[in-house]
């Protein structure tokens, strides 16, 4: 592979409209930020400019780690992604299995209105993707082993659009698998039911709904520009301010707003927190959590944390076993006196 190819591969996300950091979306996010600060917050243009391009944010220690992780994680991704199960493998498996039931036959609704089917598929794909993101994200917070990995993302103390890449590769793998499962299920069920009329409404090759999500300033979620929506709208869509609140060190903000694009999942499952315009938010893990500090930490520390969690749990299990057992243990070093 030529050096230029490697370089292009590393930076390809900037020119791929399927990715959040596509230059078009970044540009639009910038415009939204200016409009918000000047028209809504009534800041002077100069002040807005200084606020948006805040050197303390973009060149902070945290941000500099993000930029390095961006490149290192791309390398991991290039190595690991060919090994992961693909959405096509999952879709094929489910498509096969759907033939084992006799309630609906293959292509049963192939005479349905194409516009309706394409709209339904585009919407279902978006919802399935968003719904699975919500749950995986929730689990990343609730399960200690997964939290050990997800802490890498939450250790960011300043946020820029590149912070979306501040993740442990293990988390990247989990999100990739989630995407494969979501796509595999929706693609296979739609093709089975509707046959070859299934298609996707796209703009610049992207699901129209994903496109609008990014157009609406998805990059501002990881930024210091705190844009909140009307309360009713924050029950439907997660505003940038709501996601920033998710990154807050304040205890009352912990485990809130897991949603990616839609807020309805948080609303339904009791994790919704509306934005708070007047409150200054400090990003990061806070003093109670020990987070990774260096590049090496970002990759190694989660495993050390997991080792600690497992050791603790093994001790707990052994203790529990010895308490409930009448047999003499192999060793009673940690057990109760018999």
């Amino acid at each position: 592979m030529e050096y230029t190819e490697i370089f292009n591969d590393f930076l390809s996300d900037f020119i791929d409209p399927k990715k959040r950091i596509f230059v078009g979306y970044l540009g639009l996010s910038l415009i939204i930020a200016y409009v918000w600060l000047v028209a809504v917050r009534r800041s002077a243009l100069k002040t807005a400019h200084a606020q948006i391009f805040n050197h303390k944010v973009f060149f902070s220690k945290s941000a500099r780690i993000d930029y390095k992780l961006f490149f290192i994680n791309r390398a991991f991704s290039l190595l690991v992604s060919p090994l992961l199960i693909t959405q096509i493998a999952i879709a094929t498996f489910i498509f096969y299995e759907l033939h084992r039931q006799n309630i609906v036959h293959s292509g049963q609704f192939s005479d349905a209105n194409k516009t309706f089917v394409v709209a339904l598929f585009s919407l279902s794909m978006f919802i399935a993707d968003d719904f699975t993101k919500y749950f995986l994200h929730r689990w990343m917070h609730r399960w200690p082993v997964l939290w050990a990995f997800h802490k890498v993302h939450h250790s960011a103390e300043t946020m820029t659009p590149i912070t979306v890449y501040r993740v442990h590769p293990a988390e990247g793998i989990l999100y990739g698998l989630r995407s494969a499962v979501a796509q595999g299920i929706v693609i296979s069920t739609f093709i089975f039911a509707f046959g070859n009329i299934v298609d996707l409404y796209t703009i610049v090759g992207v699901n129209i709904l994903v496109f609008f999500f990014h157009m609406a300033g998805s990059n501002l979620r990881h930024s210091h520009i705190s844009i909140g929506y009307w309360k009713f709208l924050e029950h439907v869509f997660i505003s940038p301010a709501q996601h920033q609140l998710h990154h807050s060190v304040a205890e009352e903000h912990h485990d809130k707003n897991f949603g990616a694009a839609l807020a309805i999942w948080d609303w339904l499952f009791g994790s919704l927190h509306l934005s708070e315009a007047e409150k200054d938010i400090t990003y990061g893990l806070g003093l109670t959590e020990s987070g990774p500090k260096t590049i090496g930490d970002m990759y190694i520390k989660p495993f050390l944390d997991i080792y600690g969690i497992l050791t603790l749990n093994i001790k707990k299990v052994r203790k529990l076993l010895f308490l409930s057992s009448n047999e003499k243990p192999f060793s009673n070093r940690f057990g109760p006196k018999l």
């Binding site: 990715k19 791309r74 690991v80 992604s81 959405q87 498509f95 993101k133 979306v164």
Partner: peptide, 21 residues
């Protein structure tokens, strides 16, 4: 009969480096 699955999967794009929040 599996071509449509593949075509849609390709349209949706690969899942590598899927964005997290």
């Amino acid at each position: 009969q599996l071509a449509d699955l593949g075509a849609l999967a390709e349209m949706l794009g690969d899942q590598s480096n899927a964005e997290t929040d």
